[in-house]
């Protein structure tokens, strides 16, 4: 049984990686398991300067999921290169940096700065954070802005660029085509869906930011549908799929929809061993459903007519 997948810049021993923002920079979860077991690691978003994020509460539990509005808290790209990424270089696991910004110039600056690091294999361009006032999701909902930021980051970066798409759009394939036209090496999808939860006693939204990004199993059918649609429209673009993956069966469903690899997000919070447990179960699940490798399953869920 081969779990290996090869994507631009990424030779993955298996297709499972923790999603950005759900794994910090790896140190905490390295206490629970050997990070060498992971296919790759997508670290928390980097911005040009340190950010301290939104007021609290920043999270709320929902039916089959959670809302978060962290607000891109991170120590800034320079500190991430100096203090966080070297720890991950000891593992035989590719590292993908996630970059965010308020302006095209900030995205470009972060991408250029990350060229100085020798500890990376690829970049995930976060044009879909719903929780910051400026930047983030506006780049992910306007095809022209998405195209511009993708093109300029692609020009600036030495690394393959995977663009993380927002599900908060009417037509996901329009967005996917726009960033692929602009030179994206791959797609990463989906980010969280904007949501809200109101506390009945307090008569006010639970999250201080009022809205937050919905993640977890609640959004999995949306992710599957969007990956399926983009795979129909773009047969060759590499896709890292994510959205509510909790089990190896979920991974297979994403592969069938057309994802080449997957990221596990919210599940890490519930179970720190979620990624290695899913990886361990994947061969048995692939075999149960008649596949001899991960590669063989990719896109096999599409029916014609």
């Amino acid at each position: 049984m081969s779990l290996a997948v090869t994507l631009p810049g990424l030779a993955l021993k298996n297709p499972v990686m923790p999603a950005s923002g759900c794994f910090g920079f790896g140190k905490e979860y390295s206490q629970f398991f050997d990070l060498n077991e992971l296919g790759a690691i997508i670290v928390k978003a980097a911005t040009g300067e340190a950010r301290y994020g939104n007021p609290t509460p920043r999270v709320a539990e929902t039916s089959s999921g959670m809302l978060n509005a962290i607000g891109l808290q991170n120590p800034g790209v320079d500190n991430i290169i100096a203090d966080e990424l070297p720890f991950l270089s000891r593992f035989d696991t590719p590292v993908i940096a996630n970059i965010a910004g308020s302006t095209v110039e900030e995205y470009v600056k972060v991408a250029e700065t990350l060229n100085k690091s020798n500890d990376l294999s690829a970049i995930e361009l976060n044009i879909s954070c719903p929780n910051v006032k400026e930047g983030g999701v506006q780049f992910g909902t306007d095809p022209e802005l998405a195209k511009e930021v993708t093109y300029k980051v692609k020009q600036a970066s030495n690394y393959p660029v995977y663009v993380k798409l927002s599900p908060n759009v009417t037509n996901i394939t329009t967005m996917a085509k726009a960033v692929v036209d602009a030179g994206a090496d791959g797609l990463s999808m989906i980010n969280t869906l904007t949501g809200m939860q109101i506390n009945l006693k307090k008569r006010a939204p639970i999250i201080a930011n009022k809205t937050g990004g919905l993640s977890g199993p609640a959004i999995k059918p949306v992710a599957i549908r969007m990956i399926y649609e983009v795979r129909q429209a773009l047969s060759d673009i590499p896709i890292i799929g994510m959205g509510g993956i909790m089990t190896a069966e979920d991974v297979l469903e994403f592969l069938l929809a057309g994802a080449n690899a997957v990221a596990v997000g919210t599940a890490n919070f519930q179970n720190p061993h979620a990624c290695p447990e899913i990886i361990a179960e994947l061969p048995g699940i692939l075999s149960k459903y008649g596949f001899e490798s991960v590669e063989e399953a990719i896109g096999k869920g599409h029916v014609h007519g």
């Binding site: 923002g21 759900c22 794994f23 910090g24 905490e28 979860y29 206490q31 928390k44 301290y52 994020g53 609290t56 509460p57 920043r58 999270v59 709320a60 959670m66 978060n68 962290i70 808290q73 890490n268 919070f269 720190p272």
Partner: peptide, 16 residues
């Protein structure tokens, strides 16, 4: 105390 996400220091949900 605060609403927590991961509880181990990765998600930045519970800050003061």
């Amino acid at each position: 105390e605060e609403r927590m996400g991961c509880g181990v220091g990765t998600c930045y949900a519970c800050v003061v």
